[in-house]
């Protein structure tokens, strides 16, 4: 919340940022889909390996921090989006903040500084927020349009990771329960990599390649 409070005036003042000019630099929507798909593929695998390797994985401090760092990175990404994209600025900022806080909470749990139940509240909130960000705020078009359907599916899959996380927390040493979170991340990654909704035309009207 502190981040949101501090950054809000700056975000507000950034309304004059040259969004259109930046579009040559910022990846297009379908490019973002694929980049995030690759990221979630890596994250899903990391979670599955964490479940299989257990104490061996967590014995290295840098490996222990991959998942919390990924959450924080996604959060900072959304804060950056809030600065660049004039649409849904406050929503992006708040959701980014939620994800950063979740990353901090998960890290604190992994170092024995926070109870699992407490950390879980923040992480589950971030997963639901992530699902809403993708499934609700990025869904454009009518209920039967391709972008709406693709984003709804993505958002639903992301949000499903929250109940999976709750299910795991009730038996934190269960390999199948922990791996389920990773499997959902893998499904999300395949949806991102495989599904496209035709937004492959840049702001100058030039078609890039078929998505």
């Amino acid at each position: 919340m502190i981040i949101a409070a501090v950054a809000a005036p700056a975000v507000d003042a950034s309304g004059s940022l040259p969004f259109h000019q930046l579009h040559g630099v910022i990846p297009l929507p379908w490019e973002n889909h694929r980049l995030f798909g690759a990221g979630f593929l890596l994250l899903g695998i990391v979670i599955i390996v964490e479940s299989l390797a257990g104490g061996v994985w967590f014995s290295a401090s840098w490996r222990r921090q991959i998942w919390p760092a990924a959450l924080m990175l996604l959060g900072w990404g959304l804060v950056a989006v809030a600065f660049i994209d004039p649409q849904d600025r406050i929503i992006h900022l708040l959701m980014g903040t939620v994800m950063i806080v979740a990353g901090v909470a998960e890290r604190r749990y992994r170092y024995g500084e926070m109870r699992l139940a407490t950390a879980n509240v923040f992480v589950m909130l971030a997963l639901v927020a992530g699902g809403m960000e993708v499934g609700v705020f990025h869904s454009h078009g009518t209920a039967r349009s391709e972008p709406f359907l693709v984003h709804s599916l993505l958002g639903f899959t992301a949000a499903m990771m929250a109940p999976a996380r709750y299910y795991w927390a009730r038996a934190p040493q269960s390999v199948p329960r922990y791996a389920l979170i990773g499997v959902l991340a893998l499904i999300l990654s395949l949806e991102l990599l495989g599904l496209s909704h035709g937004e492959n035309i840049d702001l100058h009207g030039t078609q890039t390649f078929s998505g």
């Binding site: 479940s51 390797a53 104490g55 061996v56 967590f58 749990y109 170092y111 934190p172 040493q173 390999v175």
Partner: peptide
């Protein structure tokens, strides 16, 4: 050694 550790 390969069980998932609990930090709570």
């Amino acid at each position: 050694e390969v069980t998932i550790p609990v930090f709570d």
